[in-house]
């Protein structure tokens, strides 16, 4: 095959994309979200996700989710090899539909929280957390 300028460009573009896009990871989180929502439309009001803008260490990142009235809140780390993090199911004795925990992030990525409301609707919040790479292995 004769390499034209266009071919070369296309090949370069393709490999650059492959290098920067973790396709499989994104596909995995979309599959996971669809499994939770059943493919329903997802709104953005009525849910908050609190996470640090920058985590000093990806091993222990504090997060907090809150979706007043929700039946359940599921949390994903979109860039982790396995995106699922936790599902919080709230019972009748919960005073609020909120919870805080500490999670592992494999690198800088979006953390996504989706709440299932009693009427069957879904709302979502997401935030990018930058995970810094330390200078000292120690």
């Amino acid at each position: 095959m004769k390499l034209t300028r266009r071919h070369t460009l296309m090949m370069a573009f393709g490999s650059a994309l492959a290098a920067v896009m973790p396709f499989r990871a994104f596909a995995a989180v979309e599959d996971n979200i669809a499994a939770f929502t059943g493919g329903a439309a997802v709104g953005s009001e009525g849910i908050t996700l609190i996470a640090p803008e920058i985590a000093e260490n990806g091993n222990t990142v504090p997060i907090e989710v809150n979706a007043p009235g929700a039946e359940a809140i599921i949390v994903f780390a979109a860039g982790n090899p396995t995106p699922s993090v936790a599902t919080f199911n709230f019972g009748p004795m919960a005073a609020s539909q909120s919870a805080a925990t500490r999670i592992r992030l494999a690198g800088t990525q979006d953390v996504v929280a989706i709440a299932r409301m009693p009427d069957g609707s879904f709302v979502q919040a997401s935030q990018e957390v930058k995970v810094t790479i330390g200078g000292c292995g120690g």
Partner: peptide, 23 residues
């Protein structure tokens, strides 16, 4: 009666910590 029922995945940190509210 249930306050909270959590499913944990391996992305929860060592020494799992939870904070939540009850009536």
């Amino acid at each position: 009666e249930t306050v909270i029922d959590v499913t944990l995945e391996p992305a929860i940190s060592t020494n799992p910590y939870f904070e939540f509210q009850a009536i």
